[in-house]
Amino acid sequence: MPSRRRTLLKVIILGDSGVGKTSLMNQYVNKKFSNQYKATIGADFLTKEVQFEDRLFTLQIWDTAGQERFQSLGVAFYRGADCCVLVYDVNSMKSFDNLNNWKEEFLIQASPNDPENFPFVVIGNKIDVDGGNSRVVSEKKARAWCASKGDIPYYETSAKEGINVEEAFQCIARDALKSGEEEEIYLPDTIDVGSSSQPRSSGCEC
């Protein structure tokens, strides 16, 4: 394999259980929707190559378990993220109300250099359900919240129908890129990196 230089963009998807995080990721990466996703246990992971102005990037997407108790496992993935996607279900007020908790929790766990300007993107998913009749969070309300949090970009999607998913993820990739934390990675060639200088990655903070 040629040792070609690329840039890695790391994206974390957070949000309450059942809002459609796994579906969004799969719709974006594989252009597929399934009614048969299992509840995510721990975390899942997919990658996609994206191109911006002749440069090739690898978007590394971490899909997390939504139940609060799993947050203690999240630490390992949050670190080094370039963008965080907050997902809620437009048919569930609770999932919307929890966005702030997810945001705060992420900032605590990931401790980015510049938390004030760390890029978030908010997605209101499941706009297809019941033809929009069971919707309880209005677009206006969601946009107002995003505006109050420093103009977070906002998208409304249907992972099931594939509506707006591509657009949302393009924004996510762009923001991740802008965040300036471009992490150059080199695909391993034969250079010995010297193991002792490598930071240990495991250390779970408990």
């Binding site: 246990i41 721990g42 975390a43 496992l73 390992a76 391993p188 193991s195 490598q198 240990r200 990655s201």
Partner: peptide, 18 residues
């Protein structure tokens, strides 16, 4: 695994949990 920054929470937590 160390070099690639892989740790078991990325792949093995569901082995134990389920």
């Amino acid at each position: 695994f160390t070099q690639e920054m892989i740790n078991p929470s990325m792949y093995a937590s569901q082995w134990f949990i389920t």
